[in-house]
Design a protein around this nucleic acid. Structure first.
Length: 885
RNA sequence: GGGCCUAUAGCUCAGUUGGUUAGAGCACCACGUUUACACCGUGGGGGUCGGGGGUUCGAGUCCCUCUGGGCCCACCA
């Protein structure tokens, strides 16, 4: 609410030499104590701006890319807060998943064994092991619950460090709103959502070929794949025809899968193989008889045009196997090694002997062995032909994925159900994308889905699937009728908790029960960050006032994972988008234009950066880069940002030095109130055309900056504000300095002082989202530290008078520039007086320039100034006379 | 194989529906101890807008094409 408050007759808080040093710690403390960023519960939805902050992975370190993108989000948060919204700006910590699991194993020298009981008195054998991974033999097995406790303990330390960095950077997060993706509420939320999915038939179990990482020994989802170019070789291998004609030659990159061969396949129109379709051929070495079949996916111009189908060499094999109803003859185990026993059907003595040569070998070694055997038998034609080809990898893995039949949980995501796919496509179109072209990434991904979302993982640290199975009298689980917990019991750990209707002693016994051994994909929890942060499960009032959220800020590389999966969950559970706007930040490139990342070893430690340049400076660098655009790591920009912050301090100090009880520079509108109708009273003193011109220009700056920020274009807002600010400092202040000192009388002084004050209060608020520390510091000189600039109302054009002609300031600046150039070319001080000067001014600018003539003469130390209309369209000096010294 | 982004001064980038002589900052050069600021100020030099073609009175901007860089997707025998 507006209150007319007497201005202090002096402003004692202004230091003689303003400095940025120490502002981060000072203001973080004050903001924290005053709760400047605290979200007010119970605020109606339309007065809330809610942000689905990306929870950083805590088992790593923050790098400069985080500083970059989180700054973008903070600018948005600060803008909307000043626009009067209650900003819901939580911070999550992603401590769920493989990175934490590995780190805890090494740090405490333990490993998770879900079959073990919980030990409440457990003490880890070691604390602080970093560096080399300790091998499994030296890791003490512990229960899942003990393991999770260790994860929580370790990540709590990381989270403190992360929070310290974010505070130093000036993120206006409400630190009372934090969550962890492995905390009890996140686990319960994740399990609850799963149970609801299960109840509606969206989650289901299948025994099916699964993309499998042999290092982590877990299934992985389509979204976690990446192609890598790897060397390989075509091996030309002959299959004996049973009709007595010569052999059929195929080319394969995976000869070790010959014992898993179930058919040969060629295109139905391929004339070369027409007579073979329906016939049997014999697999070399292994003696299996397999049919020759046809399928449209076989490409006549690839290799010999006829391929062997194995169970399973790649995803095409899976398609052929499924669509052609071929038998399964899997030979790879979970560890990626050839299974000890030959598959069904491999009956011949020679075949079994050959298989025995491979059993137990890795795929790589088996391949070499098979090549030797094929050479000996004469079935390999020529030498293998080296090629480079894309191979599917788990994005975190370093061995090629295999495809292994396993029992897994899936969540419907449009990969199978075409109607759902169309709905999700529409959700992507409903969403506002910044920049808009990122929408295409989403569309590409949804269009390319080829299976439902595989959400089960054969890992230990994660949210357990909340499922048990009853065991029949022979001890076999009944997968078709899972035993589920009550929603009120969540979170549960089926490995230690007992389902209703059973006794703990019945675990694992015939007639008893067993736990589903798996945990959920980390994205199965991360995809619920809006539901977790907004209290879907346990705080309906908060949920109502914050969901769907306003903004999802995130990186471009996880559109297919985090963004898409979040859309899926909200669509299935709430039948809405989870958020209305998505702001996609780019990557940070090092000076060689390579993506900066930890693995590339070219990362700068963020805290060092913040300490060296100052947080406002680093924020400036980040703010100067547009959403969706990769940005260069550029300390030059940080220096510029630092210069700007210092300039804000110094210019403000100068302006404030003129303020006393006669000048009301405050536009008294707190962020929680409405515009003060009496604001215009402060305009009455502003009478000089130069002052009015400056304020008119600033009105336009307010409009442009506001429009830009409302459209998530923070770079534009910063640019217009900054450009104006430097003109304000370099031209306007210089023009009116003498008048403000009273050299042109009290009315002129009052006008200049009032105009400067209005400009300053406006500029500080326009800069506040970008330079929170410098602006807070200056605001406190003026209004005391009890009142934060960060809760002031965002400026509106109506705050300032509109009667001025901006051309006056522009013309005055240009004429002043001509006088300065004359002095610069004469190599004299800017203080040097000019006895007289004549300046030719384009006709259209003579009026505006003349309106500022007195200020130009004072700023240019020119005793006699003649402004003449010129046909020329540039401003030029026509005569000058230096004063005698 | 399909698609997206990008190419403007030595560097980092603006350039909003096509419209005077393409801008800023950094860097560079010159000058200046100006009581807001030496973590400074003032002024200056510097660009055939990636190449080629086209539309237009007029193209950095629109179209075609080629090339370089970054990225996404794809069934990888």
């Amino acid at each position: 609410m507006s209150q007319q408050r007497p201005l202090p007759s002096q402003l004692p808080n202004i230091p003689d030499r303003p400095s940025l040093d120490g502002l981060e710690a000072k203001w973080d403390q004050i903001w924290s104590n005053q709760g400047v960023y605290t979200f007010r519960h119970g605020t109606p939805r339309d007065q809330v701006y809610s942000i689905d902050t990306p929870p950083p992975t805590v088992s790593g370190s923050l790098h400069v890319g985080h500083v970059f993108s989180y700054t973008h989000t903070d600018i948005v948060a600060r803008f909307w807060r000043m626009r009067g919204k209650q900003v819901f700006y939580p911070m999550g910590w992603d401590d769920n998943g493989l990175p934490t699991e590995r780190r805890v194993q090494n740090y405490y020298a333990v490993r998770c064994d879900p079959s073990l009981p919980y030990d409440p008195t457990f003490v880890p054998p070691q604390e602080g092991g970093e560096g080399k991974p300790s091998d499994a033999a030296h890791q003490l097995p512990v229960s899942r619950r003990n393991f999770v406790e260790l994860c929580e303990r370790l990540t709590a330390q990381d989270e403190k460090q992360f929070e310290a960095l974010w505070r130093h950077l000036g993120l206006s997060v409400d630190w009372g709103q934090t969550y962890q993706t492995i905390d009890a509420n996140a686990r319960a939320t994740s399990q609850l959502a799963f149970l609801r999915n299960l109840r509606r038939g969206e989650a289901y179990q299948r025994l099916a070929p699964t993309l499998w990482d042999v290092t982590f020994r877990t299934a992985v989802a389509q979204a976690e794949l990446e192609d890598r170019i790897r060397p390989g070789a075509y091996h030309r291998v002959g299959f004996e025809r049973l009709d007595g004609y010569g052999p059929v030659f195929i080319e394969t990159t995976r000869p070790e899968l010959l014992p898993a061969c179930v058919a040969l396949v060629a295109h139905p129109d391929d004339t070369r193989y027409q007579e073979l379709f329906g016939q049997l051929v014999r697999v070399p070495l292994f003696g299996l008889e397999v049919p020759v079949v046809s399928h449209r996916l076989a490409e006549p111009d690839k290799g010999s045009g006829i391929a062997m189908v194995c169970t399973f060499g790649d995803v095409t094999d899976v398609i052929w196997w499924r669509e052609l109803n071929l038998p399964a003859r899997a030979i790879l185990g979970w560890d990626g090694r050839i299974l000890p026993e030959p598959p069904a059907g491999l009956d011949s003595a020679a075949g079994q002997a050959a298989y025995g040569e491979l059993a137990g070998l890795t795929a790589f070694s088996a391949r070499q062995r098979v090549v030797q055997l094929l050479r000996q038998s004469g079935d390999l034609v020529g030498d293998p032909q080296p090629i480079e080809h894309p191979v599917k990898f788990f994005e975190r893995g370093d061995k090629p994925l295999e495809i292994i039949p396993t029992r897994q949980w899936y969540l419907s995501n449009g990969g199978v159900d075409q109607a759902l796919r169309q709905q999700l496509m529409r959700r992507g179109n409903e969403l506002n994308w910044f920049p808009d072209f990122m929408r295409v990434r989403y569309q590409n991904w949804v269009e390319g889905l080829n299976s439902d979302w595989l959400i089960s993982r054969q890992r230990f640290f994660g949210v357990p699937l909340p499922v048990w199975y009853q065991l029949d009298q022979s001890g076999q689980p009944d997968y078709d009728h899972p035993v589920l917990p009550d929603e009120s019991d969540l979170p549960v750990d089926p490995a230690t908790d007992t389902p209703h209707g059973y006794q703990p002693e019945q675990r694992g016994l015939p007639g008893g029960f067993m736990a589903d051994p798996d945990v959920m994909d980390t994205w199965a929890t991360s995809s619920l960050t809006p539901q977790i942060a907004c209290g879907w499960r346990n705080d309906p009032a908060l949920f109502a006032s914050t969901f769907p959220m306003d903004l999802r800020p995130q990186a471009q590389d996880i559109i297919r994972t985090w963004l898409f999966s979040t859309v899926v969950r909200a669509h299935l559970e709430q039948a809405t988008l989870p958020f209305y706007n998505a702001a996609i930040s780019g990557f940070i490139l090092d000076p060689n234009r390579k993506k900066m990342s930890k693995s590339k070893g070219n990362v700068v430690t963020p805290m060092n950066l913040l300490e060296e340049f100052g947080s406002d400076a680093v924020r400036y660098w980040a703010a100067a880069a547009r959403l969706g655009t990769d940005a260069a790591f550029d300390t030059g920009q940080m220096k510029v940002g630092r210069r700007l912050a210092i300039k804000i301090l110094n210019a403000s100090k100068f302006v404030l030095s003129f303020l006393d009880g006669s000048v009301d520079g405050s536009v008294d509108r707190s962020v929680d109130g409405s515009a003060d109708a009496s604001v215009a009273s402060t305009w009455l003193d502003v009478t000089n055309p130069v002052d009015l011109a400056m304020l008119a220009e600033l009105r336009s700056v307010i409009s442009r900056a506001t429009d830009a920020l409302a459209a998530y274009d923070h770079t534009r807002a910063l640019e217009v504000t900054e450009t104006f600010f430097w003109t304000f400092c370099d031209d306007y202040i210089e023009l009116v300095k003498a008048r403000a000192h009273g050299e042109a009388g009290p009315a002129g002084a009052a006008s200049a002082r009032q105009a400067m004050a209005l400009a300053l209060t406006t500029l500080l608020r326009l800069f506040a989202p970008f330079q929170p520390f410098a602006t807070a510091e200056v605001w406190s000189w003026w209004h005391g530290s009890e009142e934060s600039v960060h809760r002031q109302a965002w400026p509106t054009p109506e705050d300032l008078p509109a009667t001025g002609d901006p051309a006056i300031l522009a013309a005055a600046g240009a004429v002043l520039g001509v006088l300065r150039r004359a002095k610069s070319e004469a190599k004299v001080s800017m203080r040097t007086e000019l006895a007289s000067a004549s300046v030719g001014v384009p006709t259209a600018l003579t009026g505006p320039a003349t309106a500022a003539k007195a200020d130009i003469m004072a700023a240019g130390r020119t005793l006699e100034l003649t402004l003449t209309a010129s046909d020329n369209d540039i401003i030029e000096l026509t005569a000058v006379e230096f004063a005698q010294t």
